[in-house]
Simulated assay, not measured.
Amino acid sequence: MPTLVILMILAGAAFGFWSAGRAAAERAEVVGRNACEAAGVQWLDQTVHVTAIRLCRGGDGWLGWERTFRFDYSRDGEDRHVGRLVLRGDRLVNFIGPVSRLETPPPT
Rank of each mutant, 00 (worst) to 15 (best):
G64V: 01
R70W: 03
G40H: 10
A24D: 00
M8Q: 14
G97H: 02
W65C: 01
G83Q: 10
R57Y: 06
L85D: 02
W18V: 12
N34R: 15
D60W: 09
T68L: 05
R88W: 06
E66N: 03
L7E: 13
A13F: 14
R84G: 07
T68G: 01
G97W: 03
C36D: 05
A23Q: 13
C36S: 04
P107H: 05
S100G: 03
R22F: 07
G64E: 10
P2E: 13
G97F: 00
D72A: 15
A24E: 00
V86I: 09
A52T: 04
D60Q: 13
N94F: 07
E78R: 13
V93P: 07
H49Q: 11
R91C: 08
E103H: 11
V82G: 04
R75N: 06
G59S: 14
D72P: 04
R70A: 14
R67F: 01
L10H: 03
R33C: 02
T51P: 00
L85I: 01
L92N: 06
C56D: 13
I53K: 01
C56G: 08
F69D: 02
Y73C: 06
T104P: 01
A23K: 11
M1F: 06
L44S: 04
T51M: 00
V82N: 09
I96M: 09
I6W: 02
A20C: 04
L63T: 12
R67N: 03
D79N: 15
P106I: 06
R88E: 14
L63A: 08
G77E: 05
W18Q: 15
F15P: 05
P105H: 03
P2F: 06
A52N: 10
W18M: 11
L55T: 05
W62P: 01
A35F: 05
A14V: 01
A52H: 08
L63K: 10
